[in-house]
Write a protein that binds this DNA or RNA. Structure first.
Lengths: 228, 228
DNA sequence: TCAAAAGTGTTCAAGCTACACCCATGA
DNA sequence: TCATGGGTGTAGCTTGAACACTTTTGA
């Protein structure tokens, strides 16, 4: 049984994959070695399969480039301008993923022509992918101010100064060290590991990890990490 | 030229249409007189046409039931579980619309089997439409706390007590009259019309209208109408 | 003249901002 | 021993929550 009237349409999934290297917020792009627009940069994407849920497809596409599973992903808008894809009318559902950049399979990414760019140095992308990245950044900035999604970009153990650098990268602005620390600790989301960061140049900072119980239960509560 | 490999998929648009009658937040549903699930309640929806942008399609579908144009609409998530539609694999992109309930064409709505329900009295809907309404309500509650979308549900001229009733309906809770008034006026988004609400039972309240300049320019700023 | 709704004022506590000061580390 | 980075404390201001009082209107 099928719907008779309307026409079927190509459905694509495109992924904005973000990482943080300790200094800059970065995005993983691929140089296309296939038409159309071969040789240009684009988001990692793919087509939805006949028997595949949207979230499964997004996870598959992320896995193809990074080797990662169980990553924080969030669905953004569908982009559906009739002329957005020159080959054929295609509606694309955009996702963003926040990964721990040190955990991904960089060998695999290289094979797939993947390359990391600082957000500030991002090249122009094909189709409407620039607008997708814009809306992903907007959503991350919006959500990270109110909910603890930033932690998804950090390793399991991290210091508060590292977390602050992340927030400063996301919002491209400076934050007061002392107030930031107090605000973060007041959420009670962090547990001190007792260890210190041995990599640090001068004074070694305390390593914390997430209180995963509280993290899960309070994820949708409001924390106001940043005042917008 | 076409993409060879992947399969084309049915793309539907479903609209959560909200209104406010002065006391309750309401949603406009239709009783289906067609298969599948004829006789049951559902959101107003339709299929995306070959040469139609997503937002145009959503506007068309809203217009078919309400006669309205230029309404505040926002795209929500796409729903894509493989078994969500028993007829055929269909991905549905959900929108919500906020309308001034007194402006819509109620005759047209009746012809199309439309009926308004208080949110609290909403019947169970077909397919995954209940989940769509849930996510629309979630988004409205989220966004109305921070941005002035609530005004879209009110007539051009309204009183602050009316606005308060709207917020109380959206959040299903009581707010302090005095603090609410101060908070709203402090945004400077309202202009006094000098007129008073002649319908009021006892003391007549001042009618305000939106400062449309400020409304547009500050729409994406943060106002914290409600503390979540 | 009384009840219900609308408008304005005040107080107290909590939170945020903007600072100063001290400690630990490695060159 | 000195520069750099990390941790804690505090004063002053702003904001929000919880209140009381007054005014207007129709019954």
């Amino acid at each position: 049984m099928q719907y008779p009237q309307a026409s079927r349409i190509m459905l694509a999934i495109d992924c904005c994959i973000f990482g943080f290297d300790g200094d800059d917020l970065k995005i993983l792009l691929i140089k296309r070695n296939f038409e159309p627009e071969a040789g240009k940069w684009s988001l990692m994407g793919g087509f939805l399969k006949e028997n595949e849920d949207l979230e499964i497809a997004a996870g598959r596409i992320l896995h193809e480039l990074t080797g990662l599973n169980n990553v924080y992903m969030e669905q953004l808008k569908a982009h559906g301008k009739t002329d957005r894809d020159p080959v054929e009318r295609t509606v694309s559902i955009c996702f963003f993923a926040l990964i721990n950049i040190h955990e991904h399979d960089s060998e695999l990414a290289r094979k797939k022509n993947g390359q990391w760019f600082n957000i500030a140095d991002k090249p122009n992308l094909i189709f409407d992918h620039d607008a997708m990245v814009e809306s992903a950044l907007h959503q991350i900035r919006y959500k990270a101010a109110l909910h603890p999604i930033g932690f998804e970009l950090l390793p399991e153990k991290f210091t508060i100064p590292q977390l602050q650098k992340l927030y400063e990268a996301i919002y491209d602005s400076k934050l007061d060290r002392r107030n930031f620390s107090r605000k973060i600790l007041s959420t009670k989301l962090l547990i001190s590991t007792g260890e210190k960061n041995e990599n640090a140049a001068t004074n070694k900072a305390m390593l914390y990890k997430l209180d995963s119980e509280k993290y899960k239960s309070q994820f949708n509560a409001f924390h106001y990490f940043i005042n917008l």
